[in-house]
Design a binder for these strands. Sequence first.
DNA 1: GTCTATAGCCCGATAGAC
DNA 2: GTCTATCGGGCTATAGAC
Lengths: 186, 186
Amino acid sequence: MARPETISRSDLLARLTGVFRSVGYEGASLALLARETGLAKAALYHRFPGGKEEMAHAVLNDVGRDMAVTVLRRLDGAGSPRQKLSAMRDGVVEFYDGGKLSCLADLFSVEGVPDAIRSPLAGGIHAWMAAIARVVEQAGVGPDEAVRRAEDAVVRVEGALVVSRALGSAMPFHRTMERLVDDLLA
Amino acid sequence: MARPETISRSDLLARLTGVFRSVGYEGASLALLARETGLAKAALYHRFPGGKEEMAHAVLNDVGRDMAVTVLRRLDGAGSPRQKLSAMRDGVVEFYDGGKLSCLADLFSVEGVPDAIRSPLAGGIHAWMAAIARVVEQAGVGPDEAVRRAEDAVVRVEGALVVSRALGSAMPFHRTMERLVDDLLA
DNA sequence: GTCTATAGCCCGATAGAC
DNA sequence: GTCTATCGGGCTATAGAC
């Protein structure tokens, strides 16, 4: 733990993530990113020579890894389909802090955000839907219907986050999460 | 029709709406707004002395009126609940151009957008949910369940728009719209 | 690897002629 | 009611000392 004045890359990424996830890509000015990380702008450029776009890309990768651990991984391995889907739902609630955090697929998919940031979003969403569909199929649902339900589940999560943010209340998100598993297995 | 070089307020609002709805509040620079309307920045300030914030507010009011006509009004008057909800769904498809347009409740609810713009969003969403719930109740569904389904319908519309935008495909939106009415009346 | 200072540009907003 | 020209400031990004 030498040089305690040097912030670790994971701490730094967590701070950057917090900014991008609350104000979006265009709202995340370098001044704000510097203030929230405690670093000078030049120090941020030392760590991310590509500037804001590279920071957003790193944040996207980091959030993707976090999502893989907190949400996707819970759909793997042993356990009944209901157990795994319930574990995923708990992971979703944790990942979005009970509906208080926005999804990067929402904030980063807006026109004007660089394509290098927007393009990877589709893959993440497809991976999530595919992982859900696989477990729903394990519950005995036909492949096409499983894919349809998985898409609907992701649609509901994204929509619940938007509605909760616009209403300033986490209740729509929690009500949506309450029914997510039952509707996938209905 | 004197002075054809003067753009009408409704045409002007439509152009402004197009910009805000595609790039969001922070992405809508005055240079872009001026370019898309064909007016100089100073001319925009003549019509909207409050600047960008007043333009966004006017756009919000205009889109709200459009939504009231294209979506909400179809839930009133005669017809069976299914007929009215189907008409609303068709209005939603039209209003969001088959899933290609974003919802202002999504774009304008992000942190950093002025409160005067963010605050009115909640009322619009509540009004929409209430109008749906009223028709679902007319179909014989209990009040609490009707409110729950109405919230879920709005959640699905918002989520389908986000997922479609992030995937670059209108298919999730259309699949969601296909099932909207049946699920409200199930 | 961090900092201060600053370049150069685009931002929102305004002055003033027509 | 429109325009050109411009202001002050915040933006992304960089230079260079330590």
